[in-house]
Simulated assay, not measured.
Amino acid sequence: MGIIERVKKAQQGDEQAYLELFQQYEADIYRTAYVYLGSSEDALDVVQETAYKSYKAIATVKEPQYFKTWLIQIAIGCSIDMLRKRKKEVQWSPDLLDHLAAVKDEEDIPLSVSLRDLIDYLTAEEKHVILLRFYYDITIREAAEMMGIPLGTGKTLLYRALKKLRMRVEEGDSREFKSN
């Protein structure tokens, strides 16, 4: 049974179909939350909150083929809510960087720019848009909607982040970025 069929069954009240769907993407939800929160305990809380919210709202999924995107959007929203409650920035620990490096193949990142560089040299908003756009392959329009920002702002953030990364490649690893 494919994703579309499972989503339709879940929307009709089939709890087993929902459970199978959620379990299929649970690791992605955890990784997403961990990237935002930097804590395995908080990430697990977000997984639980995402399960609860998505189960209650499964009937609202209009395009079943985008179920994973819909789930990730809920997880990001839950992560951002948790960050707001904390009232502080994500702390990017060395353990988090190692975890992220293991998750994404570095061959997708050009030349000397590694995932560690991406995290170290971008602002929180730039990280957010880059992760959504390139890690989850979400369009810039969808990323802007998920972040609750205008499309133009999303494009600006993406452009600025890519410009920083290009500068990093051209200048080499020995030179530090300025924050803007």
Score class of each variant (00 low, 15 high):
12 Q>V: 02
113 V>Y: 00
143 A>W: 05
51 A>F: 13
11 Q>V: 00
115 L>H: 12
144 A>T: 03
29 I>N: 02
69 T>M: 13
91 Q>P: 04
110 P>T: 06
160 R>P: 00
161 A>S: 14
60 T>C: 00
134 F>E: 13
168 R>G: 04
155 K>D: 07
78 C>P: 02
56 K>P: 02
127 K>R: 15
11 Q>I: 01
69 T>E: 12
5 E>G: 08
3 I>N: 09
20 E>T: 14
53 K>I: 12
149 I>F: 00
65 Q>D: 10
144 A>V: 03
68 K>L: 08
77 G>E: 07
39 S>T: 00
32 T>N: 09
93 S>K: 09
104 K>P: 02
174 S>C: 07
79 S>F: 04
168 R>Y: 11
160 R>K: 13
73 Q>E: 15
60 T>H: 05
178 K>Y: 10
55 Y>L: 12
151 L>F: 13
92 W>P: 02
78 C>F: 03
178 K>F: 09
114 S>G: 15
112 S>Y: 07
74 I>N: 00
111 L>F: 12
157 L>R: 07
158 L>G: 01
99 H>R: 10
82 M>A: 14
170 E>R: 07
58 I>D: 00
92 W>Y: 15
59 A>N: 08
152 G>R: 14
12 Q>W: 07
10 A>Q: 03
12 Q>I: 02
42 D>G: 05
179 S>H: 09
157 L>Y: 10
14 D>V: 04
163 K>N: 08
171 E>W: 11
1 M>W: 08
62 K>N: 08
18 Y>N: 02
2 G>I: 11
36 Y>S: 05
174 S>H: 13
100 L>W: 02
70 W>F: 01
37 L>H: 02
141 R>G: 08
77 G>Y: 02
89 E>I: 09
171 E>T: 12
26 E>Y: 04
160 R>D: 07
68 K>V: 03
43 A>C: 00
83 L>D: 03
161 A>D: 05
11 Q>T: 02
22 F>D: 03
137 D>N: 14
52 Y>N: 10
180 N>Y: 10
130 I>L: 08
175 R>H: 14
169 V>W: 07
103 V>L: 12
62 K>V: 08
33 A>L: 02
91 Q>Y: 15
156 T>M: 09
70 W>C: 00
22 F>V: 00
136 Y>F: 14
56 K>A: 09
28 D>C: 03
154 G>K: 02
160 R>I: 01
174 S>D: 15
33 A>Y: 04
130 I>G: 05
26 E>R: 15
111 L>M: 11
61 V>L: 01
49 E>M: 09
125 E>R: 14
145 E>G: 06
23 Q>I: 04
3 I>V: 11
134 F>P: 05
168 R>V: 08
178 K>T: 13
85 K>R: 15
74 I>Y: 04
166 R>Q: 14
67 F>G: 00
6 R>E: 12
135 Y>D: 15
170 E>S: 04
35 V>E: 11
2 G>F: 10
176 E>F: 13
167 M>Q: 15
112 S>P: 06
76 I>N: 07
79 S>H: 05
41 E>C: 03
